[in-house]
């Protein structure tokens, strides 16, 4: 069968697509590059939107439903844009034993978000992680990519308030 497809061009002029293209090219635009490509999309754009899913599907020649199935199977991927700041609470066993649940409930009370949600004003995304591997420092929380150990509910809320007040407006 002939397979001389024309490679689709990126959805926009945005330079970040070059990173995505580079990943796909590195893997010879083979279908098995799907997960690696989605990683690059999420790293570059923060999340996977429909446009990105369609583009990756077209270049790698993978059915749309397959791409969607993969994107929703792996919890590391998100289809929604993240908030300005993200707070990841580790809920691995060691952190759980040392009170991760109370941290989550304190945030829920103060900011009105559950893990996987973003505050209405888009300031804060709360996530939970299955073990960051920082068990020796339990309970651990990641603030915008920075792992901080031995946390308490009040210390976490202090950090979060720092974000929301520094940015001018309060939370919703």
């Amino acid at each position: 069968m002939r397979t001389d497809f024309v490679n689709p061009s990126p959805p926009s002029e945005d330079k970040r697509w070059r990173l995505v293209d580079a990943t796909m090219r590195r893997h010879g635009r083979q279908s098995h590059a799907l997960i690696e490509s989605l990683h690059t999309v999420q790293e570059s754009f923060g999340y996977l939107d429909e446009e990105a899913l369609r583009y990756v599907a077209a270049v790698l020649r993978v059915p749309l439903s397959h791409v969607y199935g993969v994107a929703t199977f792996y919890h590391f991927f998100t289809l929604k844009p993240p908030g300005e700041h993200t707070c990841v609470v580790c809920t691995g066993t060691a952190c759980y034993i040392k009170g991760a649940a109370s941290i989550l409930s304190a945030i829920a009370q103060a900011e009105g978000v559950k893990p996987g949600e973003t505050t209405k004003d888009g300031k804060l995304s709360l996530l939970s992680a299955r073990c960051l591997g920082s068990c020796g420092l339990a309970p651990a929380v990641v603030f915008d990519g920075e792992v901080v150990g031995k946390m308490t509910p009040s210390l976490v809320l202090e950090r979060i308030r720092g974000w929301t007040s520094r940015d001018g407006r309060g939370t919703a």
Partner: peptide, 26 residues
């Protein structure tokens, strides 16, 4: 390197292989 994407079941050999092949890790 192949990066996992947050699926504990991919520790299972056959699921891990599916994941390296770019599929759902079942």
């Amino acid at each position: 390197l192949r990066l996992g994407a947050g699926a504990f079941v991919c520790g299972e050999e056959t699921a891990l292989i599916a994941s390296i092949e770019g599929k759902r890790g079942t």
